[in-house]
Structure formats: structure tokens, C-alpha cells
Design a binder for these strands. Structure first.
Lengths: 320, 320
DNA sequence: CCCTCCCTTGCAAACGGTTGCCAGACCAAG
DNA sequence: CTTGGTCTGGCAACCGTTTGCAAGGGAGGG
């Protein structure tokens, strides 16, 4: 139905190869011929078929971006930044959501292979082994995960966790609950590692949990019962759910329990109390990941971005 | 680099056409041959190149989904529902964000054409004319917009707006501010139409505005100054920004001003006060849109989904 | 024992482009 | 008027897969 390169060739009276060159190698065709071709293309409404082009050139000018849960407000800034950066480099980004399911994740990557020039894998749930195998078929950049020999963009979670714990310690908290995220999450492991080597604090660990509001709600009772005066949550969604759950039990934040999250998502800023959190440089990570993917010379480069503690209203002095 | 159908053919000692059939028409090949082919394919790690397949078959088993702003929490439930529904019908969904920019939107659609079997256009910012032209190249289903002869999924905004206005009137409000969304938004127009024919209410209209928290923040002063005791906002994001802006001016919601939003997004449920809102059936819309797109027999079908008023904490009796 | 018919497989042409190679046209210099 | 170089555009192969057509072989019926 749609016009092909042949139609344009016929109408403008030249060979298809000339039409092709008129578009992708203008300096190889006579300006007069070229404008004749372009005119014909224009009134036929011709658009090169990108899939066909990809077949011969091997380049699609598309990028894939895979996230575990698109409804987690942490991702949109990352996605938007990646899209903007890609657009500036003449590429488009296709986003897909895995529903936190590794099988879906693998399936999606397989589908994307050959339809994109590279894939941004954000907080993957797949094992390193599987990812390494898939990397033979399509270039990856991994965000929030360190994988041997693969370009990664990391956020300095350890530093953020340390800042958060210092902040709490400074407010007089001693017994602190650590509400973890999904099993196999690199971020979650980093947090636990920092916690493990923290001095003079009494840490209780809960999890693994779904990194969602629901996950937080579900943990509220246990956390309240454990005697901690402060909580460090895997992410803001969990933290928000926790605050909600505690409120439902009549426990006030920060008067009775302090809560810190990770990510610095929008709802955390709108919530009352406004959430104290460790801000993750999501937009910067998105841009950086695209750069890494497109320069592709950067074999196995690892970039680590700094995090920052943002103190708002959900943390206060420990009740004595 | 990656194995092709030829490699499999060579290894298993058959013609490429046989390999092809072993995958896509098993009944046409001898079971013994087939298992030999499958074995060869398996240890070569062969995966059919979907782009190449699409070239001959014209089918990609991919769907495109275009939204104006992926960071608007209204969209993720719609996206997830669409993905789940598509997955059940053996298709994948690629999401792209237009940044509310019609030019980007058009560009994205062009890119998607021929790489997908159809496109879900959610709250498009493009003119009807342009959309109709683009529809010649790829099948569309439009969400939140009515376009002649094109399958659409609508939400009954008029009904929701009427419910909201009734609710406010019942609480004694007479002067009500209508904080509109982007120009050219079908939803925004519907709201204004309902407002225009409402009896006994004194309505002041503001806008167009960006449908974001920032848009709401920016309008807070004007709304406060106009003497309205209640506000109906284009969406929850605007409403949330408004509440925030009013709070910053020392104005309490709902004690001094009542606020109603649209969409029923998660942050609205977490916010204090919890937002009264008109719930939009986003997930149902996503599922329905995919169905419409895939059955494709449903030329120009229009589906309208009901909305519901959810009364929470941001509305109260009018101050007298 | 021959003739059909069905099963299985190979052949080759498409799908819509890109690109290395080659030939003709043209121009300037010798 | 030849020679050599530069432009320009055509030819054809190729990318990976599907599919209509036809040929070979074996089995069953007459």
C-alpha cells in the first residue's frame, strides 16, 4: 500500500539505487537529479522502510529500554532523560516493562534483539549468567547492576546509605529497621553491606519485599513491633507504604518512628510528612547510559554517580 | 555474528526453506527432520530475525503505544494493562513518550510505522487531520479522543464532571474554578462543555495549563484570588500542585477551598489530604484499546467507559 | 505391475532497501 | 585529437526469512 523505493524510482525515472543514494548519500548524486527524486518521493509520501533498511545496514537507530515496573515513579525521569539524549543522537527509544518477571524480561530482550541497536537494562531481575549470554546478541548497558565486562551505570547507593545512617545516628537513633527490596537486587545488596559494617547501630533486616507501596504497607506491623525507632527503606514507594501503614496503626512519623527512603520520587515530595530520602541521579543515569551505548567504544566502562541525602519531614529525633 | 537460518540449514543438512517451515509450519515437515533441525537450531542458539520476517510477512507482532508524558502517573496502569493484554495475544508493546510535543509525536509515529502492527495513541496532541493522514500508513486506536471513522476508546468525562459538580453543589459551593488542561485536549473540552451547561453555578475558567504538578502550582495564586470556594482540575497532577501551592499561601484544603481532580492516580491517594477525584478506567481502556487494534475488524468502533466519583478528603462544605 | 495421490523437501522469487563495482559522459590538460 | 581523471548513475548481489510451485519417492488401490 505505502509507496516503496521502486515507486519513487519509476516516477522519477531513475534506478532504485539512485533513489537510495539521494537519501543516504546525497553527495553521490547530481543535485538536479536529487531534487527530482525528492520531489517524486514527497508527493508519493514515500518513507524509507526502516525494518528493510536495518536488514542490510545492521543499524536500526532504535534503542530498547527495559524496566522492571514502569509505574514506579523512579523510572520516568530516567526514561525521559534517555529519550532526550537519544533523540539528540538521532535515535529513538522503545520502552518495555517486565512486571518484575525475569521470564518476561528475557522474552522482551529476545524480541528487541535485531530491532534495536542496543538495550538499556534498568535494575534487571535476570541472573548475571543469563544476561551475559544475551549480550552476545545485542549490546547492553546495565543500570543499577554491576556485571563483569559489561558497561554499567551505577548509583552510589553505599554512600547514600551511609549518609542516611549517619543522619539517623545523629538524631539519636540506635535500633534501625532495614526494609529490603526484591531478592537479587544489586541496590538492596549494597544497602545491606553498608548496614552490616556500620558501627554502634543495632540493625534489624526485613525482606525481601516487593518494591512497592503495597510491600511497605504489608511490613508496617512487623516494623512497628520490632522496637526500632527508625527505618531505612529500599525505596520511596516502600517508605510511603510504610508511613501509610504506620499511620493506620496510629503511629506518627516522625514523632514516633523516623523513615528514610531512596530515589526521591515526586509523590514523596507531595506526601505529608514530606519524605526524607536519598536522591538517586536517575536522569543523569539515563543520559549516561545512552552515551555509553552509542559510543560503544567504551567496552565495559563503569560509571558511578553520586547520591545525596535530602532531609525533609519524615525524620526526627529519636524518642527516648 | 548471530546464527541465521542458513547456518541452521547447513548444520542440519537441509534447505533453508525446511528450517523455516520447521518453525512456522511444523505440520509440513517430517517429525524426524524437524527434531534434527530444532536440535541444530538449539545448539547454534538460533533465533529468527523478526525484522527480516516482518519484511516478507508484513506482520511484526509488535504494538506501539504513544503517550504524551510517561511521568504522569495516569499512564502506567493503562500501559501495564495494554502490555498484559497484548502479551496474552502474543504481541509485545513498545512505549514511547512525546514530551507533549506534536512534532515529536509525528516523528515517533513515522518511526513506528512498519516496525509495529498497530499503534495506540493515548491523548494525542496532533490535529485530527494529521492523524487521519498518518492512519493510512499504520492502524491506529485512539484513546481519549474522538476521530471520525477511527476506532476510539473514550472515558465518560462528561459524566464524571457532572458528578463532581453535583457533589460540590451539594456541599454548598456556588463559585467554582475550572482549571483546564492543554489546548486541544479532548478531555479538557468535554469538561468545559459540561461546565458551560451547568445550572446555578458560577464558573471561572483558567488555562490552558500544562497538565502537571508545576501547572497547578503556577495557578494557585490566581485561583485563590478569584473568590471560588472550590476547584475542578483537569487532572490529579494539576490538583495536587494546586493543593501544594495553596498550602504554601497558608490556605487550607478542604477547610477554605475544596479541590477535585481527575484520574485517581496513586500520589493522590497518598497525599494529605487524600484527593477527591473522578476515577478514570485507565486499565480497562488499555485492554480495550489492544483488543480493538488486534481484532481490527472493528472498523471505527467507539467504546466509552464509565467514570466514578471517589470522595476522599479534599472536598468539604463551602465556607459561608 | 502400473497409476495416483500424498508427503516431504528443494528451488527460486519475493519483501524493501543498500552498496561495491563498473561504464559512460564530460572536462581539462597535453 | 588523444589521454586521464572526476562525476554520475546503472547493475546486481546481498541482508534473513517466507512461500508458491514443482519434483521425487513411497504407499495404496485397481
Amino acid at each position: 500500500m505505502a509507496a516503496t523505493i521502486k515507486d519513487v524510482a519509476r516516477v522519477s525515472g531513475v534506478h532504485v539505487s539512485t533513489v537510495s543514494r539521494a537519501f543516504s548519500a546525497p553527495h553521490l548524486v547530481n543535485p538536479a537529479t536529487r531534487s527530482r527524486v525528492l520531489a517524486a518521493a514527497d508527493d508519493l509520501g514515500y518513507r524509507p522502510n526502516r525494518a528493510a533498511r536495518a536488514l542490510t545496514t545492521g543499524r536500526t537507530f532504535n534503542l530498547g529500554l527495559i524496566v522492571a515496573d514502569i509505574s514506579n515513579p523512579f523510572f520516568p525521569p530516567l526514561i525521559k532523560a534517555a529519550q532526550a539524549q537519544a533523540r539528540g543522537r538521532d535515535h529513538h527509544v522503545f520502552v518495555a516493562d517486565t512486571d518484575e518477571d525475569p521470564r518476561v524480561e528475557e522474552e522482551l530482550i529476545r524480541t528487541l534483539t535485531k530491532q534495536v541497536d542496543g538495550v538499556l537494562l534498568c535494575s534487571p531481575r535476570l541472573s548475571n549468567k543469563v544476561i551475559e549470554r544475551l549480550a552476545e546478541d545485542v549490546p547492553f548497558v546495565v543500570v543499577n547492576r554491576r556485571i563483569r565486562g559489561m558497561p554499567s551505570v551505577l548509583m552510589n547507593v553505599a554512600q547514600g546509605a551511609a549518609l542516611a545512617l549517619d543522619h539517623l545516628a545523629g538524631l539519636g537513633h540506635r535500633r534501625i529497621a532495614l526494609v529490603c527490596g526484591p531478592a537479587g537486587s544489586w541496590t538492596s545488596n549494597e544497602m545491606q553491606a553498608v548496614a552490616a559494617r556500620s558501627q554502634g547501630l543495632d540493625l534489624v533486616s526485613f525482606g525481601p519485599n516487593q518494591p512497592t507501596e503495597g510491600g511497605g504497607l504489608a511490613m508496617a506491623a512487623e516494623v512497628a513491633a520490632c522496637g526500632a525507632t527508625a527505618v531505612l527503606a529500599y525505596n520511596d514507594l516502600l517508605a510511603l507504604g510504610l508511613v501509610e501503614g504506620l499511620a493506620a496503626m496510629g503511629i506518627k512519623v516522625p514523632e514516633q518512628i523516623s523513615v528514610i527512603g531512596f530515589d526521591d520520587i515526586l509523590p514523596g515530595r507531595l506526601n505529608r510528612p514530606k519524605l526524607t530520602t536519598v536522591a538517586m541521579p536517575a536522569a543523569a543515569a539515563g543520559r549516561m547510559a545512552v552515551d555509553l551505548l552509542l559510543q560503544s567504544g567504551g567496552e565495559g566502562a563503569t560509571v558511578t554517580l553520586d547520591t545525596a541525602l535530602i532531609v525533609r519531614e519524615s525524620t526526627g529525633r529519636a524518642r527516648t
